[in-house]
Write a protein that binds this DNA or RNA. Structure first.
Lengths: 241, 241
DNA sequence: GCCGATTTGTCCGTATGTATC
DNA sequence: CGATACATACGGACAAATCGG
Protein backbone atom coordinates (compact mmCIF):
# COMPACT_ATOMS: atom_id res chain seq x y z
CA UNK A 1 0.00 0.00 0.00
CA UNK A 2 1.98 2.96 -1.21
CA UNK A 3 1.22 5.97 0.90
CA UNK A 4 3.84 8.19 -0.66
CA UNK A 5 2.55 10.19 -3.58
CA UNK A 6 5.55 9.63 -5.83
CA UNK A 7 5.18 5.89 -5.32
CA UNK A 8 1.56 5.74 -6.34
CA UNK A 9 2.35 7.82 -9.43
CA UNK A 10 5.23 5.46 -10.14
CA UNK A 11 2.94 2.45 -9.91
CA UNK A 12 0.26 4.07 -12.00
CA UNK A 13 2.68 4.92 -14.80
CA UNK A 14 4.25 1.47 -14.55
CA UNK A 15 0.90 -0.21 -15.00
CA UNK A 16 -0.06 2.02 -17.90
CA UNK A 17 3.20 1.12 -19.64
CA UNK A 18 2.69 -2.60 -19.01
CA UNK A 19 -0.90 -2.31 -20.23
CA UNK A 20 0.32 -0.77 -23.46
CA UNK A 21 -1.20 2.67 -22.99
CA UNK A 22 2.25 4.13 -23.43
CA UNK A 23 3.85 1.97 -26.11
CA UNK A 24 7.43 0.98 -26.82
CA UNK A 25 9.48 3.87 -28.23
CA UNK A 26 6.75 6.46 -27.66
CA UNK A 27 7.20 9.46 -25.41
CA UNK A 28 5.45 9.97 -22.10
CA UNK A 29 3.54 13.21 -21.60
CA UNK A 30 5.97 15.96 -20.64
CA UNK A 31 6.81 16.48 -17.00
CA UNK A 32 4.75 19.65 -16.97
CA UNK A 33 1.74 17.84 -18.36
CA UNK A 34 2.16 15.07 -15.80
CA UNK A 35 2.26 17.57 -12.95
CA UNK A 36 -1.20 18.68 -14.04
CA UNK A 37 -2.50 15.15 -14.63
CA UNK A 38 -1.49 14.07 -11.13
CA UNK A 39 -1.78 17.54 -9.62
CA UNK A 40 1.59 17.49 -7.94
CA UNK A 41 4.94 19.22 -8.23
CA UNK A 42 7.44 18.50 -10.97
CA UNK A 43 9.82 17.19 -8.34
CA UNK A 44 7.44 14.40 -7.46
CA UNK A 45 6.97 13.44 -11.11
CA UNK A 46 10.71 13.26 -11.55
CA UNK A 47 11.07 10.83 -8.65
CA UNK A 48 8.46 8.57 -10.24
CA UNK A 49 10.19 8.73 -13.63
CA UNK A 50 13.53 8.04 -11.95
CA UNK A 51 12.10 4.82 -10.56
CA UNK A 52 10.88 3.76 -13.99
CA UNK A 53 14.31 4.46 -15.48
CA UNK A 54 15.95 2.24 -12.84
CA UNK A 55 13.59 -0.56 -13.83
CA UNK A 56 14.57 -0.16 -17.46
CA UNK A 57 11.05 0.96 -18.40
CA UNK A 58 11.90 4.45 -19.68
CA UNK A 59 14.86 6.60 -20.62
CA UNK A 60 15.00 10.39 -20.38
CA UNK A 61 16.12 12.34 -23.44
CA UNK A 62 17.36 15.79 -22.55
CA UNK A 63 15.24 18.42 -24.26
CA UNK A 64 13.03 15.89 -26.02
CA UNK A 65 11.00 13.84 -23.58
CA UNK A 66 10.92 10.52 -21.79
CA UNK A 67 10.96 7.48 -24.06
CA UNK A 68 9.34 4.17 -23.19
CA UNK A 69 11.79 1.29 -23.67
CA UNK A 70 9.73 -1.38 -21.95
CA UNK A 71 9.26 -4.60 -23.91
CA UNK A 72 7.25 -7.48 -22.47
CA UNK A 73 9.27 -10.68 -22.34
CA UNK A 74 8.20 -14.24 -21.75
CA UNK A 75 9.13 -15.15 -18.19
CA UNK A 76 8.91 -18.92 -18.00
CA UNK A 77 12.02 -19.22 -15.90
CA UNK A 78 12.71 -18.79 -12.24
CA UNK A 79 13.58 -15.15 -12.53
CA UNK A 80 15.20 -13.34 -9.65
CA UNK A 81 14.76 -9.64 -9.20
CA UNK A 82 14.89 -7.34 -6.21
CA UNK A 83 14.59 -8.99 -2.83
CA UNK A 84 12.18 -11.86 -2.90
CA UNK A 85 11.77 -15.03 -0.91
CA UNK A 86 11.75 -18.51 -2.38
CA UNK A 87 8.05 -18.86 -1.64
CA UNK A 88 7.22 -15.53 -3.30
CA UNK A 89 9.16 -16.48 -6.43
CA UNK A 90 7.54 -19.90 -6.60
CA UNK A 91 4.07 -18.41 -6.29
CA UNK A 92 4.80 -15.87 -9.04
CA UNK A 93 5.88 -18.71 -11.30
CA UNK A 94 2.85 -20.86 -10.41
CA UNK A 95 4.89 -23.73 -9.06
CA UNK A 96 4.46 -26.11 -6.16
CA UNK A 97 7.20 -25.47 -3.64
CA UNK A 98 8.47 -27.72 -0.88
CA UNK A 99 11.47 -27.68 1.42
CA UNK A 100 13.63 -30.30 3.11
CA UNK A 101 15.74 -29.20 6.07
CA UNK A 102 19.10 -30.99 5.98
CA UNK A 103 20.71 -29.23 8.90
CA UNK A 104 19.69 -26.97 11.76
CA UNK A 105 22.48 -26.17 14.23
CA UNK A 106 24.01 -23.41 16.29
CA UNK A 107 27.60 -22.45 15.67
CA UNK A 108 29.96 -19.70 16.70
CA UNK A 109 31.70 -17.41 14.22
CA UNK A 110 35.48 -17.87 14.32
CA UNK A 111 37.94 -15.59 12.56
CA UNK A 112 37.77 -17.42 9.22
CA UNK A 113 33.98 -17.55 9.14
CA UNK A 114 33.80 -13.90 10.14
CA UNK A 115 35.95 -12.84 7.21
CA UNK A 116 33.87 -14.90 4.85
CA UNK A 117 30.44 -13.87 6.06
CA UNK A 118 30.91 -10.41 7.53
CA UNK A 119 29.58 -11.36 10.97
CA UNK A 120 31.51 -10.19 14.04
CA UNK A 121 33.81 -12.80 15.59
CA UNK A 122 32.19 -14.70 18.45
CA UNK A 123 28.59 -14.16 17.40
CA UNK A 124 26.29 -17.14 17.75
CA UNK A 125 24.73 -18.19 14.47
CA UNK A 126 22.03 -20.50 13.29
CA UNK A 127 23.50 -22.73 10.58
CA UNK A 128 20.74 -23.96 8.30
CA UNK A 129 20.94 -26.06 5.17
CA UNK A 130 17.86 -26.71 3.06
CA UNK A 131 16.94 -28.31 -0.24
CA UNK A 132 14.23 -26.51 -2.21
CA UNK A 133 11.98 -28.45 -4.53
CA UNK A 134 9.78 -27.14 -7.31
CA UNK A 135 7.12 -29.42 -8.76
CA UNK A 136 8.83 -32.33 -7.06
CA UNK A 137 12.35 -31.71 -8.41
CA UNK A 138 15.19 -30.80 -6.02
CA UNK A 139 16.64 -27.70 -7.62
CA UNK A 140 18.09 -25.34 -5.05
CA UNK A 141 20.45 -25.80 -2.12
CA UNK A 142 20.11 -22.99 0.41
CA UNK A 143 22.74 -22.37 3.05
CA UNK A 144 21.68 -19.74 5.59
CA UNK A 145 23.49 -18.25 8.54
CA UNK A 146 21.47 -16.03 10.87
CA UNK A 147 22.65 -14.06 13.87
CA UNK A 148 20.80 -15.72 16.74
CA UNK A 149 20.52 -12.53 18.78
CA UNK A 150 18.77 -10.75 15.90
CA UNK A 151 16.53 -13.64 14.82
CA UNK A 152 15.57 -15.23 18.14
CA UNK A 153 13.27 -18.21 18.40
CA UNK A 154 14.03 -19.71 15.02
CA UNK A 155 13.09 -23.40 14.86
CA UNK A 156 13.47 -26.28 12.45
CA UNK A 157 9.72 -26.13 11.80
CA UNK A 158 9.96 -22.49 10.75
CA UNK A 159 12.91 -23.32 8.51
CA UNK A 160 10.73 -25.90 6.75
CA UNK A 161 8.19 -23.26 5.77
CA UNK A 162 9.43 -19.72 5.32
CA UNK A 163 12.03 -18.02 7.46
CA UNK A 164 11.33 -14.68 5.84
CA UNK A 165 7.66 -14.85 6.74
CA UNK A 166 8.73 -15.42 10.33
CA UNK A 167 11.25 -12.59 10.29
CA UNK A 168 8.99 -10.02 8.66
CA UNK A 169 5.69 -11.25 10.06
CA UNK A 170 6.24 -12.53 13.59
CA UNK A 171 9.36 -10.58 14.50
CA UNK A 172 8.24 -7.47 12.65
CA UNK A 173 11.75 -6.91 11.36
CA UNK A 174 12.14 -5.10 8.06
CA UNK A 175 14.63 -6.21 5.46
CA UNK A 176 16.16 -3.23 3.72
CA UNK A 177 19.44 -3.75 1.93
CA UNK A 178 20.73 -6.91 0.32
CA UNK A 179 24.18 -7.23 -1.26
CA UNK A 180 24.64 -10.12 -3.64
CA UNK A 181 27.35 -11.75 -5.71
CA UNK A 182 26.60 -14.14 -8.50
CA UNK A 183 29.10 -16.77 -9.61
CA UNK A 184 29.16 -20.20 -11.26
CA UNK A 185 30.73 -23.04 -9.31
CA UNK A 186 31.48 -26.72 -9.76
CA UNK A 187 28.94 -28.95 -8.04
CA UNK A 188 30.07 -30.32 -4.70
CA UNK A 189 29.47 -33.89 -3.61
CA UNK A 190 26.63 -32.57 -1.49
CA UNK A 191 25.05 -30.81 -4.48
CA UNK A 192 25.25 -33.99 -6.52
CA UNK A 193 23.82 -36.06 -3.69
CA UNK A 194 20.75 -33.92 -3.05
CA UNK A 195 19.95 -31.99 -6.22
CA UNK A 196 18.58 -33.07 -9.59
CA UNK A 197 21.47 -31.67 -11.60
CA UNK A 198 20.97 -33.73 -14.73
CA UNK A 199 23.96 -33.39 -17.03
CA UNK A 200 25.19 -30.14 -15.48
CA UNK A 201 28.35 -30.22 -13.39
CA UNK A 202 27.97 -26.59 -12.26
CA UNK A 203 25.50 -24.43 -10.37
CA UNK A 204 24.57 -20.78 -10.32
CA UNK A 205 25.55 -19.52 -6.90
CA UNK A 206 24.14 -16.40 -5.29
CA UNK A 207 25.95 -15.26 -2.19
CA UNK A 208 24.31 -12.51 -0.23
CA UNK A 209 24.38 -10.44 2.93
CA UNK A 210 21.14 -8.99 4.22
CA UNK A 211 20.74 -5.95 6.46
CA UNK A 212 17.76 -5.05 8.63
CA UNK A 213 16.22 -1.64 9.25
CA UNK A 214 18.94 -0.83 11.80
CA UNK A 215 21.62 -1.24 9.17
CA UNK A 216 22.94 -4.37 10.89
CA UNK A 217 23.71 -7.52 8.95
CA UNK A 218 21.62 -10.39 10.28
CA UNK A 219 21.97 -12.94 7.49
CA UNK A 220 24.50 -14.54 5.20
CA UNK A 221 23.10 -16.76 2.50
CA UNK A 222 24.35 -18.97 -0.24
CA UNK A 223 21.75 -20.13 -2.74
CA UNK A 224 22.93 -22.80 -5.16
CA UNK A 225 20.67 -23.13 -8.18
CA UNK A 226 20.33 -25.88 -10.74
CA UNK A 227 21.01 -23.92 -13.97
CA UNK A 228 17.63 -24.57 -15.64
CA UNK A 229 15.86 -22.67 -12.91
CA UNK A 230 18.03 -19.65 -12.62
CA UNK A 231 17.76 -16.30 -14.33
CA UNK A 232 18.78 -12.91 -13.04
CA UNK A 233 17.70 -9.63 -14.59
CA UNK A 234 19.30 -6.26 -14.20
CA UNK A 235 19.22 -2.80 -15.70
CA UNK A 236 22.30 -0.60 -15.62
CA UNK A 237 22.34 3.11 -16.31
CA UNK A 238 25.65 4.57 -17.37
CA UNK A 239 26.83 7.61 -15.49
CA UNK A 240 28.05 10.48 -17.53
CA UNK A 241 31.68 11.41 -17.47
CA UNK B 1 34.81 15.00 -14.69
CA UNK B 2 31.62 15.50 -12.73
CA UNK B 3 30.19 18.92 -13.35
CA UNK B 4 27.06 18.39 -11.31
CA UNK B 5 27.40 19.34 -7.67
CA UNK B 6 25.57 16.32 -6.29
CA UNK B 7 27.91 14.05 -8.23
CA UNK B 8 31.09 15.55 -6.87
CA UNK B 9 29.68 15.34 -3.35
CA UNK B 10 28.76 11.73 -4.07
CA UNK B 11 32.31 10.95 -5.21
CA UNK B 12 33.85 12.77 -2.28
CA UNK B 13 31.77 10.86 0.27
CA UNK B 14 32.40 7.61 -1.58
CA UNK B 15 36.15 8.10 -1.40
CA UNK B 16 36.04 9.04 2.25
CA UNK B 17 34.12 5.86 3.00
CA UNK B 18 36.55 3.74 1.00
CA UNK B 19 39.48 5.46 2.71
CA UNK B 20 38.03 4.55 6.10
CA UNK B 21 37.28 8.07 7.28
CA UNK B 22 33.69 7.00 7.81
CA UNK B 23 33.97 3.46 9.13
CA UNK B 24 31.68 0.44 8.85
CA UNK B 25 28.58 0.79 11.02
CA UNK B 26 29.26 4.41 11.95
CA UNK B 27 26.90 7.26 11.08
CA UNK B 28 27.63 9.96 8.55
CA UNK B 29 27.30 13.57 9.69
CA UNK B 30 23.64 14.58 9.62
CA UNK B 31 22.20 15.98 6.43
CA UNK B 32 22.06 19.43 7.97
CA UNK B 33 25.73 19.24 8.91
CA UNK B 34 26.62 18.07 5.41
CA UNK B 35 24.77 20.98 3.83
CA UNK B 36 27.10 23.27 5.76
CA UNK B 37 30.20 21.21 5.00
CA UNK B 38 29.51 21.29 1.27
CA UNK B 39 27.59 24.58 1.35
CA UNK B 40 24.64 23.33 -0.66
CA UNK B 41 20.98 22.57 -0.15
CA UNK B 42 19.69 19.55 1.72
CA UNK B 43 18.13 18.28 -1.49
CA UNK B 44 21.55 18.02 -3.12
CA UNK B 45 22.98 16.13 -0.16
CA UNK B 46 20.09 13.71 -0.32
CA UNK B 47 20.76 12.92 -3.96
CA UNK B 48 24.39 12.11 -3.15
CA UNK B 49 23.33 9.87 -0.26
CA UNK B 50 20.78 8.19 -2.51
CA UNK B 51 23.57 7.24 -4.88
CA UNK B 52 25.64 5.77 -2.07
CA UNK B 53 22.64 3.73 -0.90
CA UNK B 54 22.20 2.29 -4.40
CA UNK B 55 25.83 1.20 -4.35
CA UNK B 56 25.29 -0.56 -1.04
CA UNK B 57 27.65 1.85 0.72
CA UNK B 58 25.17 3.34 3.21
CA UNK B 59 21.68 2.81 4.53
CA UNK B 60 19.40 5.56 5.84
CA UNK B 61 17.77 5.08 9.23
CA UNK B 62 14.69 7.22 9.68
CA UNK B 63 15.12 9.57 12.62
CA UNK B 64 18.61 8.33 13.42
CA UNK B 65 21.06 9.00 10.65
CA UNK B 66 22.82 7.37 7.72
CA UNK B 67 24.79 4.24 8.53
CA UNK B 68 27.86 3.14 6.63
CA UNK B 69 27.56 -0.51 5.54
CA UNK B 70 30.53 -0.56 3.19
CA UNK B 71 32.99 -3.40 3.72
CA UNK B 72 36.07 -3.77 1.54
CA UNK B 73 36.22 -7.14 -0.16
CA UNK B 74 38.99 -8.85 -2.03
CA UNK B 75 38.26 -8.54 -5.73
CA UNK B 76 40.56 -10.97 -7.47
CA UNK B 77 37.92 -12.05 -9.91
CA UNK B 78 36.63 -10.63 -13.12
CA UNK B 79 33.88 -8.64 -11.47
CA UNK B 80 31.15 -7.10 -13.55
CA UNK B 81 29.32 -4.04 -12.38
CA UNK B 82 27.48 -1.27 -14.15
CA UNK B 83 28.25 -0.88 -17.83
CA UNK B 84 31.86 -1.57 -18.59
CA UNK B 85 33.72 -2.80 -21.63
CA UNK B 86 35.95 -5.84 -21.72
CA UNK B 87 39.06 -3.67 -22.00
CA UNK B 88 38.04 -1.51 -19.05
CA UNK B 89 37.41 -4.58 -16.89
CA UNK B 90 40.70 -6.16 -17.89
CA UNK B 91 42.62 -3.00 -17.08
CA UNK B 92 40.94 -2.72 -13.69
CA UNK B 93 41.96 -6.30 -12.94
CA UNK B 94 45.54 -5.74 -14.17
CA UNK B 95 45.34 -8.39 -16.85
CA UNK B 96 46.67 -8.64 -20.38
CA UNK B 97 43.75 -8.68 -22.78
CA UNK B 98 43.64 -9.86 -26.36
CA UNK B 99 40.91 -10.62 -28.85
CA UNK B 100 40.43 -13.02 -31.75
CA UNK B 101 37.69 -12.23 -34.25
CA UNK B 102 36.01 -15.45 -35.39
CA UNK B 103 33.33 -13.91 -37.55
CA UNK B 104 32.47 -10.55 -39.06
CA UNK B 105 29.45 -10.55 -41.35
CA UNK B 106 26.36 -8.61 -42.30
CA UNK B 107 22.97 -10.23 -41.86
CA UNK B 108 19.36 -9.18 -41.98
CA UNK B 109 16.95 -9.58 -39.05
CA UNK B 110 14.15 -12.02 -39.86
CA UNK B 111 11.10 -12.52 -37.70
CA UNK B 112 12.72 -15.11 -35.41
CA UNK B 113 15.87 -13.05 -34.86
CA UNK B 114 13.79 -9.96 -34.26
CA UNK B 115 11.84 -11.62 -31.47
CA UNK B 116 15.03 -12.89 -29.88
CA UNK B 117 17.04 -9.69 -30.08
CA UNK B 118 14.48 -6.90 -30.06
CA UNK B 119 15.64 -5.41 -33.36
CA UNK B 120 12.99 -4.42 -35.93
CA UNK B 121 12.42 -6.93 -38.73
CA UNK B 122 14.44 -6.19 -41.84
CA UNK B 123 17.20 -4.17 -40.17
CA UNK B 124 20.71 -4.85 -41.38
CA UNK B 125 23.02 -6.06 -38.63
CA UNK B 126 26.70 -6.65 -38.11
CA UNK B 127 27.12 -10.18 -36.79
CA UNK B 128 30.36 -10.42 -34.85
CA UNK B 129 31.80 -13.31 -32.90
CA UNK B 130 34.95 -12.89 -30.84
CA UNK B 131 37.05 -14.86 -28.37
CA UNK B 132 38.46 -12.84 -25.48
CA UNK B 133 41.70 -13.89 -23.85
CA UNK B 134 43.11 -12.86 -20.51
CA UNK B 135 46.75 -13.57 -19.75
CA UNK B 136 46.81 -15.90 -22.73
CA UNK B 137 43.77 -18.01 -21.75
CA UNK B 138 40.65 -18.01 -23.93
CA UNK B 139 37.91 -17.29 -21.44
CA UNK B 140 35.05 -15.37 -22.99
CA UNK B 141 33.00 -15.86 -26.16
CA UNK B 142 31.35 -12.62 -27.24
CA UNK B 143 28.51 -12.60 -29.74
CA UNK B 144 27.54 -9.07 -30.81
CA UNK B 145 24.83 -7.84 -33.12
CA UNK B 146 24.89 -4.13 -34.03
CA UNK B 147 22.44 -2.16 -36.11
CA UNK B 148 24.47 -1.13 -39.11
CA UNK B 149 22.62 2.15 -39.61
CA UNK B 150 23.40 3.22 -36.03
CA UNK B 151 27.01 2.01 -35.90
CA UNK B 152 28.27 2.80 -39.40
CA UNK B 153 31.79 2.10 -40.53
CA UNK B 154 32.49 -0.78 -38.20
CA UNK B 155 35.36 -2.96 -39.43
CA UNK B 156 37.02 -6.20 -38.48
CA UNK B 157 40.05 -4.25 -37.30
CA UNK B 158 37.93 -2.22 -34.90
CA UNK B 159 36.29 -5.41 -33.63
CA UNK B 160 39.75 -6.74 -32.80
CA UNK B 161 40.46 -3.84 -30.48
CA UNK B 162 37.48 -2.20 -28.79
CA UNK B 163 34.12 -1.57 -30.41
CA UNK B 164 33.00 0.53 -27.49
CA UNK B 165 35.93 2.86 -27.83
CA UNK B 166 34.93 3.33 -31.45
CA UNK B 167 31.27 3.91 -30.61
CA UNK B 168 31.85 6.34 -27.79
CA UNK B 169 35.04 7.90 -29.08
CA UNK B 170 34.85 8.12 -32.85
CA UNK B 171 31.09 8.12 -33.34
CA UNK B 172 30.47 10.21 -30.23
CA UNK B 173 27.50 8.07 -29.33
CA UNK B 174 26.59 7.78 -25.68
CA UNK B 175 25.56 4.51 -24.14
CA UNK B 176 22.85 5.04 -21.57
CA UNK B 177 20.72 2.08 -20.62
CA UNK B 178 21.66 -1.57 -20.66
CA UNK B 179 19.28 -4.41 -19.86
CA UNK B 180 20.86 -7.71 -18.96
CA UNK B 181 19.85 -11.26 -18.13
CA UNK B 182 22.20 -13.72 -16.49
CA UNK B 183 21.84 -17.44 -16.89
CA UNK B 184 23.96 -20.58 -16.82
CA UNK B 185 24.07 -22.71 -19.96
CA UNK B 186 25.62 -25.93 -21.16
CA UNK B 187 28.72 -25.38 -23.27
CA UNK B 188 28.15 -25.63 -27.00
CA UNK B 189 30.56 -27.38 -29.36
CA UNK B 190 31.81 -23.95 -30.35
CA UNK B 191 32.46 -23.01 -26.71
CA UNK B 192 34.41 -26.22 -26.21
CA UNK B 193 36.38 -25.72 -29.39
CA UNK B 194 37.55 -22.20 -28.68
CA UNK B 195 37.52 -21.65 -24.91
CA UNK B 196 39.69 -23.01 -22.12
CA UNK B 197 36.81 -24.48 -20.15
CA UNK B 198 38.81 -26.95 -18.08
CA UNK B 199 36.53 -29.36 -16.28
CA UNK B 200 33.46 -27.14 -16.53
CA UNK B 201 30.66 -28.14 -18.89
CA UNK B 202 28.73 -24.86 -18.35
CA UNK B 203 29.24 -21.15 -18.84
CA UNK B 204 27.89 -18.00 -17.26
CA UNK B 205 25.92 -16.26 -19.98
CA UNK B 206 25.07 -12.58 -19.96
CA UNK B 207 22.53 -11.52 -22.55
CA UNK B 208 22.03 -7.82 -22.96
CA UNK B 209 20.37 -5.08 -24.98
CA UNK B 210 22.01 -1.67 -25.08
CA UNK B 211 20.31 1.64 -25.81
CA UNK B 212 21.93 4.85 -26.99
CA UNK B 213 21.15 8.42 -25.93
CA UNK B 214 18.17 8.49 -28.32
CA UNK B 215 16.56 5.60 -26.48
CA UNK B 216 17.04 3.32 -29.48
CA UNK B 217 18.47 -0.14 -29.12
CA UNK B 218 21.61 -0.46 -31.22
CA UNK B 219 23.15 -3.61 -29.78
CA UNK B 220 22.33 -7.13 -28.74
CA UNK B 221 25.09 -9.02 -26.99
CA UNK B 222 25.69 -12.43 -25.58
CA UNK B 223 28.78 -12.82 -23.45
CA UNK B 224 29.69 -16.40 -22.53
CA UNK B 225 32.12 -16.57 -19.63
CA UNK B 226 34.30 -19.38 -18.40
CA UNK B 227 33.09 -19.69 -14.77
CA UNK B 228 36.41 -18.93 -13.06
CA UNK B 229 36.41 -15.44 -14.50
CA UNK B 230 32.87 -14.42 -13.85
CA UNK B 231 31.40 -12.57 -10.91
CA UNK B 232 28.47 -10.22 -10.83
CA UNK B 233 27.68 -7.90 -7.94
CA UNK B 234 24.42 -6.25 -7.12
CA UNK B 235 22.72 -4.36 -4.33
CA UNK B 236 18.96 -4.48 -3.90
CA UNK B 237 16.93 -2.14 -1.74
CA UNK B 238 13.56 -3.42 -0.64
CA UNK B 239 10.64 -1.14 -1.30
CA UNK B 240 8.30 -0.56 1.57
CA UNK B 241 4.79 -1.96 1.43
C1' DG C 1 4.58 8.39 29.47
C1' DC C 2 5.24 12.98 27.71
C1' DC C 3 7.75 16.67 25.51
C1' DG C 4 11.12 18.83 22.84
C1' DA C 5 15.27 18.44 19.96
C1' DT C 6 17.28 16.02 16.26
C1' DT C 7 17.13 13.56 11.98
C1' DT C 8 15.35 11.54 7.92
C1' DG C 9 11.14 11.38 4.50
C1' DT C 10 7.99 13.74 1.50
C1' DC C 11 6.37 17.57 -1.05
C1' DC C 12 6.03 22.11 -2.93
C1' DG C 13 7.34 26.39 -5.62
C1' DT C 14 10.78 28.76 -7.98
C1' DA C 15 14.90 29.89 -10.53
C1' DT C 16 18.43 28.87 -13.79
C1' DG C 17 20.99 26.02 -17.11
C1' DT C 18 21.10 23.18 -21.23
C1' DA C 19 19.52 20.50 -25.13
C1' DT C 20 16.13 19.94 -28.82
C1' DC C 21 13.15 21.51 -32.31
C1' DC D 1 15.55 33.14 -32.37
C1' DG D 2 11.85 31.55 -29.32
C1' DA D 3 9.25 27.72 -27.37
C1' DT D 4 9.47 23.36 -25.25
C1' DA D 5 11.40 19.91 -22.25
C1' DC D 6 14.58 17.84 -19.22
C1' DA D 7 18.59 18.74 -15.46
C1' DT D 8 20.22 20.92 -11.49
C1' DA D 9 19.84 23.52 -7.41
C1' DC D 10 17.81 26.25 -3.67
C1' DG D 11 14.81 27.14 0.24
C1' DG D 12 10.95 26.23 2.90
C1' DA D 13 7.26 23.50 5.06
C1' DC D 14 5.42 19.66 7.42
C1' DA D 15 5.30 14.63 8.65
C1' DA D 16 7.33 10.63 10.89
C1' DA D 17 10.72 8.26 13.61
C1' DT D 18 14.16 8.38 17.24
C1' DC D 19 16.30 9.72 21.46
C1' DG D 20 17.20 12.02 25.81
C1' DG D 21 15.55 14.27 29.78
Amino acid sequence: MPKAKFESIFHDLKQRIEAGQYTFQSLLPSENQLTELYSCSRNTIRRAIGGLAELGYVQSLHGRGVRVIYQPIAKNEFTIGGIESFKESAARNHMKASTVVLRFEEIEADERLSRKTGFPIGSTLYDIRRVRCLDGKALIMDINLFRKDLVPGLTKAIAATSIYEYIEGTLGMTIVTSKRRMTVERATREDEAFLALGEYNCLAVITGQTYNADGVQFEYTQSRHQPDYFCFEDTAIRKKK
